[in-house]
Design a protein around this nucleic acid. Structure first.
Lengths: 221, 221
DNA sequence: AATTGTGAACCTCTTCACAGCT
DNA sequence: AGCTGTGAAGAGGTTCACAATT
């Protein structure tokens, strides 16, 4: 399906998975850049993701023509283009609500900072956890959310609370002006449609394994 | 596509996402069970997952006929069937390699234990972390993996190491006899095809948010 | 010779429509 | 009247084939 946007540029419907793969391509390109590799190809990127090269070219073709036929892709310019496409050319400020082990793991992950996603603050209700700095993340009491989110110009929220409060926290984040939410609690949130929301279910992934293993045992395919 | 398996039972190709949704349905049914609710419907399950009821019925229809027309589904029997389908009727023993914050978060999650996935042990190389018990998980030095995995009858491995050692650890787990691997490191593993493998990329999910938010700002859809 | 970019074919998954049962 | 189960239609996503370029 091809259409015409108001700016006159042609656009297509972009598969969700394409966006996720772009993030993988970017990671690979960052690595190539570090290693001093100047040129790469769809074949090479495909190997890293264990997909086929057509997929790589198709994904990129949704956004433009980045390669040279017969040659490949310039690592630095493609890297730059992907950062632009993924909205990583300027900084994003994020907060994490529910400051347990998962929150700690996420806030210590360097890949976000390097790409311009700065996890600035955390929120919790447990006294023992609040008013402390964890790595670069200062943890506030949840009642301070409206004030802190505004002051720190936070536009992304990450929910790592228990499920029974996740919906409430989601609504609170929206009220505070957050635009996008990544939800690690195992319930699916109901939020206004203009909020960009992504649910990530860790537990269901393990059940995916047991499903397939059980079938292997029984000799099914 | 419909075919005929060796046992004569008809089978179909099951969408990957169907399996993940079954895990969600099961969670909802567990909740209904706790609440004493006896009967439910595709409409109700669909509401919880924010999908459409046809999807629920289609997903279930891959595995049999569990409902009564005009009535709905019996909570307890459907719950039991899903546990059977997902291979949760007997216990699975799992280990986690790389015992950082993410590993702690996963090993403290009660949803696994309740469904029969027992995270028994962890492995690490850092002296400070090994030979300690964390919750119900005893952490061993990684050199003990062959011995411990065999002794504890572990068939699932969860990788939460840094990416530079993830491939090596994957191979080690396979050598120790593990059958399924859940990989949280941001590289895609290359392992024998008979190993059930699932990569879960936490970082890419955040970039999914920035991609969409950037487009909103620009006024695109 | 090697590699990109892309319409078309193909495959997979979701949604629809409705027959059939309670 | 209300709800399931499912073939068929529709939408979405991947793979193919090959023209175009260096």
């Amino acid at each position: 399906m091809v259409g015409e946007s108001s700016s006159g540029m042609k656009y297509r419907k972009i598969p969700q998975e394409t966006i996720i793969r772009l993030a993988y391509y970017l990671r690979a390109l960052n690595f190539f850049h570090q290693e001093g590799i100047k040129i790469t190809s769809s074949r090479r990127l495909a190997e890293i993701l264990r997909i086929n090269p057509h997929q790589v070219r198709k994904d990129l073709s949704f956004f433009g023509q980045f390669g040279k036929k017969g040659v490949g892709y310039n690592v630095d310019t493609l890297r730059d283009s992907l950062r632009e496409i993924l909205g990583l050319k300027h900084r994003w400020y994020a907060c994490i609500v529910g400051f347990g082990n998962l929150a700690k793991a996420i806030s210590l992950y360097r890949g976000f900072y390097e790409q311009g996603i700065i996890i600035k603050v955390g929120f919790d209700i447990v006294k023992r956890k609040v008013n402390k700095k964890y790595g670069n993340v200062y943890v506030y009491h949840i009642d301070e959310m409206p004030r802190v989110v505004k002051r720190e110009k936070i536009s992304l929220g990450i929910i790592t609370t228990p499920q029974n409060v996740a919906q409430e926290i989601g609504e609170k984040l929206v009220k505070c002006g957050v635009l996008g939410i990544l939800n690690f609690s195992p319930i699916r949130l109901k939020l206004p449609p203009d909020i960009v929301l992504k649910d990530v279910e860790l537990a269901a992934q393990l059940f995916y394994l047991t499903y397939h293993l059980k079938r292997k045992r029984k000799g099914g395919k």
